[in-house]
Amino acid sequence: MANTSSRTLRLLSLLQTHRFWPGGELAERLEVSDRTLRRDIERLRDLGYPVHSSRGLEGGYQLAPGGSMPPLVVDEDEAIAMVVALGTAASTYGGTLSEASLSALTKVVQVLPARLRRRAESLRSATVDSPFSRAPEVEAGVLATVAQAIRDSERLRFGYTARGGSKPGEDLRRHVEPHQLVTVGRRWYLLGYDLDRHDWRSFRLDRLRGPVGTKAVFRPREVPGGDAAAYVREGISGRDRGLRFTVAVTAPEEHVRRRIGVWGRVDEVAGDRVVVTFEAQDLRWAVFGIVYLEAPVELLEAPDELRAAIAEWRDRLAAMV
């Protein structure tokens, strides 16, 4: 007997080939009992597929009108993982790969069952992507709950492990108006208005546990500066401003802005010469950010440690070839 996931996929495929399937015939095609068939039908319904049933000797099953969707059977974690992965690819890579990722992302979201589609679209609309982001280090359920609260403008309560302050490591309860999800480097952050501290705060999602909506809606406030990603990045880099450097990039301004995302600031544009100031906490990310520009770069102002790191990577790469 096939496993549950593959059997459910085949069941959905069969339901799309006929308007009506007698229960006995459908169970026979799947090589399962009537009881197992009923459980599989319920699983499809739980995933959001509209399957109608009729009882009696001539009873059976059929997909409701308008329910002939492509057979994409995934659970919530899998749906969120696909949206995150394709969204990251679309924002990280350029050219045809980025366009293909965005096209695939749109198609995947469209063929998800209604309930999962709403969750996935909540995540897409609530997230600000930035370059160089990697796979999230948080649970899919946390991402989905937070994203849905942002979409619905619903206040959240959650546990949060403090890093600094008077009691580092303490598990605190927070009451927040969630505004935006932001990816920076390898981390996900929630930008929200802390109702207990009466100020804006960013929360690392890998330290956030048990988010629960309070059913209390709020009117979204305006983020200071109007840019959620820039506000979060500024807060992170504000804890360590030891690595700041300025470069001149020979490339069209549009190309440069697309590559630097929220990681840099365009200071000056003169034709195809774009002056950009970067801030970073990690030398490796700084070097990668320069390489990621994929254009001729001149270091205008840079600390000696960055110049040394670039020279070290140059020698490593030269040794490889």
Score class of each variant (00 low, 15 high):
residue 25 E to K: 09
residue 25 E to I: 01
residue 25 E to F: 01
residue 25 E to N: 11
residue 25 E to A: 08
residue 25 E to L: 04
residue 26 L to Q: 03
residue 27 A to R: 10
residue 27 A to V: 07
residue 27 A to M: 05
residue 28 E to R: 15
residue 28 E to P: 11
residue 28 E to A: 11
residue 29 R to P: 02
residue 29 R to H: 14
residue 30 L to A: 06
residue 30 L to F: 12
residue 30 L to T: 11
residue 30 L to Y: 10
residue 31 E to R: 05
residue 31 E to T: 13
residue 32 V to T: 10
residue 33 S to E: 08
residue 33 S to L: 10
residue 33 S to T: 15
residue 33 S to H: 12
residue 34 D to S: 14
residue 35 R to M: 06
residue 35 R to I: 13
residue 36 T to G: 00
residue 36 T to K: 11
residue 36 T to F: 00
residue 36 T to L: 02
residue 37 L to C: 05
residue 37 L to N: 02
residue 37 L to H: 01
residue 37 L to S: 02
residue 37 L to Y: 03
residue 38 R to S: 11
residue 38 R to G: 06
residue 38 R to D: 04
residue 39 R to L: 06
residue 40 D to L: 04
residue 40 D to E: 15
residue 42 E to G: 08
residue 42 E to C: 05
residue 42 E to W: 11
residue 42 E to M: 08
residue 43 R to Y: 11
residue 43 R to N: 03
residue 44 L to D: 04
residue 44 L to K: 09
residue 44 L to F: 06
residue 45 R to C: 08
residue 46 D to F: 07
residue 46 D to M: 11
residue 47 L to A: 07
residue 48 G to F: 05
residue 48 G to R: 10
residue 49 Y to N: 04
residue 50 P to E: 12
residue 50 P to H: 12
residue 51 V to H: 01
residue 52 H to V: 14
residue 52 H to A: 15
residue 52 H to F: 09
residue 53 S to P: 03
residue 53 S to T: 15
residue 53 S to W: 02
residue 53 S to Y: 05
residue 53 S to C: 04
residue 54 S to H: 07
residue 54 S to E: 14
residue 55 R to H: 14
residue 55 R to D: 12
residue 55 R to P: 09
residue 55 R to M: 04
residue 56 G to P: 08
residue 56 G to R: 07
residue 58 E to P: 01
residue 58 E to H: 09
residue 58 E to N: 13
residue 58 E to R: 15
residue 59 G to W: 00
residue 59 G to E: 12
residue 60 G to S: 07
residue 60 G to W: 03
residue 61 Y to Q: 07
residue 61 Y to S: 02
residue 61 Y to I: 09
residue 62 Q to L: 12
residue 63 L to Y: 09
residue 63 L to H: 01
residue 64 A to N: 08
residue 64 A to R: 12
residue 64 A to H: 14
residue 64 A to Q: 10
residue 65 P to Q: 07
residue 65 P to C: 07
residue 66 G to L: 01
residue 66 G to I: 04
residue 66 G to H: 11
residue 66 G to R: 09
residue 66 G to T: 02
residue 67 G to A: 00
residue 67 G to Q: 00
residue 67 G to R: 00
residue 68 S to E: 14
residue 68 S to I: 14
residue 68 S to P: 03
residue 69 M to E: 02
residue 69 M to G: 04
residue 69 M to P: 00
residue 69 M to D: 06
residue 70 P to F: 13
